[in-house]
Amino acid sequence: MTAYLVAVGIVALIYMLLTLGLNLQYGYTGLINFGHVAFFAIGAYASALLTLSGWPMAPAFAVGTLLAGLAAWPIGLLSLRLSDDYLAVVTLGFSEAVRITIQEERWLTKGVQGLPGIPRMFQSLGIGEYAEIATLALLVVVNAAAVALVVHLVRSPYGRLIQAIRDDEVAVEALGKHPARLKVQVFMVGAALAGLAGGFYAHFITYLSPDQFLPLVTFYVWIAMIIGGPGRTAGAVAGATILMVFLEGSRFTRELVPGVSEVQLASVRIAMIGLALILMTLYRPQGIFGERKE
């Protein structure tokens, strides 16, 4: 049981890291990124491929994180030229282009056959089942560091500027600051967090294939952020937890709902997520824990 909860916890923390990244981009800066899964995929594949070719894990993670951040650079530049709606669609298209590239460049990624046998974290220490607990602990630390980073960013003069961009870009410009550079940087930091999450994901699932990186992942992260309340760091933490409890909890609720077959249950689960999203936007736009602002 403990190990199962640890596993669920690991996945929740991976989603949390993703949500923190998106929250930094959208919640604080107002950058609409619907291609989050692309950076997740880049981080996952980079780290997996490097460790499979014999690299130690730490530098592989670093490279994955870095690559994801760098991949966000051109998109960040583009975000300066495009308004919200255009950016939403462009990023969505970008994530599909990344997925197709991963799928097609078989010499590198083995394409649709996928990459099996990715090493687990802390496996080489020979500490058996404690390896996963160690992974969980590391994820907690990484998430805490990410939260600290975000909070620091937000509270710094830099961060106040970021939030000012979201609220009134022209005014910021009038102050003689460069919102453009800031926005690109924020975009890259958010993407790097997604890349880091990808590294953890790759070494936890141990098998990667392109169809694990569909836009659905992006939508899940958006859902987590919306549930928790955009622009709230604690919200990202709560949102990811609730999403995970909801997705995994249904394994245990099956026995509670008689007369619903498992096929139907899968549909009911998605329907509930959709309904939650509608109701949240309608009635709790500040997230479930936030105070009403709008």
Binding site: V268, A271, L275
Partner: peptide, 8 residues
């Protein structure tokens, strides 16, 4: 959300 709901 509507897309998810309708499809499900």
């Amino acid at each position: 959300g509507i897309a998810f709901l309708v499809r499900a």
